[in-house]
């Protein structure tokens, strides 16, 4: 099977609490996927495992055509093979300029020595301008990113992710706290991104998921409950039970 990321049989326990329970998940190279599920379903933990922040107790996480095991890599190495992550709250470097934020994210050698001798080339600067245009911050480049509005920070973070040129984008609740117009912009950005790479969106908001128009995976108690189109999974009685029942 031609998959970009394959997670199989992964379990993780925190002090006796099973956050992820024998989870398996696969995504192809150019696919958009939404992950939904109630609180505590293990969505964030799942992302932590893929990005190397949490090491699972059992299971395999395999990446790319060369089938590299991500479990042996550090967070920075995982990021370098091409997995980008966007956190729920915007985490940009507030004390630095938008330009600096983007320049840091642009895909270039990441080791200390090349970074020390790095001086931006014309191409790099162009790339930054271009990204800024894409995320609608072209005229904000020389502002400190801490001065941006909440939505702008979200876009800046997405811009930084795009600058990394990842093959897989993990996005955690991108629409939280956004105005309607900002949401539309975000949807466009994500769908644009999904044309050239895999995108996984974790989201609560069904409306936003519907707008993304993609396959949906429903997580519950650390395992996959259902998978398919949004309409398909919302008809699933178990999903209804989990979301509406009790």
């Amino acid at each position: 099977m031609n998959s970009l990321l394959e997670v199989s049989g992964v379990s993780v326990t925190f002090d006796g609490f099973r956050a992820i329970n024998n989870l398996s998940f696969t995504i192809g190279p150019q696919e958009m996927r939404a992950i939904i599920g109630p609180n505590g379903a293990g969505k964030t933990t799942f992302m932590d495992i893929v990005t190397g922040k949490t090491k699972p107790d059992t299971g395999r996480v395999v990446w790319g055509e060369r089938a590299i095991s991500l479990l042996k890599l550090s967070e920075s190495q995982i990021a370098q093979v091409g997995i980008g992550r966007k956190f729920q709250r915007p985490t940009v470097f507030e004390d630095q300029l938008v330009r600096e934020n983007l320049m840091m994210a642009v895909k270039r050698p990441r080791g200390p020595v090349p970074v020390l001798f790095f001086r931006p080339s014309a191409a790099d600067r162009e790339r930054v301008e271009e990204l800024a245009g894409e995320i609608g911050l072209a005229d904000q480049l020389d502002r400190k990113s801490g001065e941006l509005s909440h939505g702008q920070k979200q876009w800046l973070e997405i811009g930084m992710l795009l600058a990394q040129e990842p093959k897989l984008l993990l996005v955690d609740e991108p629409a939280a706290g956004m105005t309607l117009a900002e949401r539309e912009h975000t949807t466009t950005l994500l769908r644009e991104a999904a044309k050239t790479r895999a995108v996984v969106v974790v989201e609560h908001d069904m409306e936003f998921v519907r707008r993304l128009d993609c396959r949906v995976t429903v997580l519950h108690e650390g395992a996959v409950l259902a998978e398919g189109s949004l309409d398909f999974v919302t008809q699933n009685p178990e999903v209804i039970e989990v979301y509406l029942g009790r």
């Binding site: 990005t51 922040k53 550090s74 967070e75 920075s76 190495q77 990021a79 370098q80 980008g84 992550r85 956190f87 985490t91 470097f93 507030e94 004390d95 630095q96 600096e100 320049m103 840091m104 994210a105 990441r110 080791g111 200390p112 970074v115 020390l116 790095f118 931006p120 930084m160 990394q164």
Partner: peptide, 22 residues
């Protein structure tokens, strides 16, 4: 850029790691 990364590490070490910097 080195300084940028350093200040990034100071402010949010994990984020710098997820950007791929060792």
């Amino acid at each position: 850029k080195f300084g940028s990364v350093l200040r990034g590490i100071r402010d949010d070490e994990a984020r710098v790691r997820f950007l791929g910097y060792p």
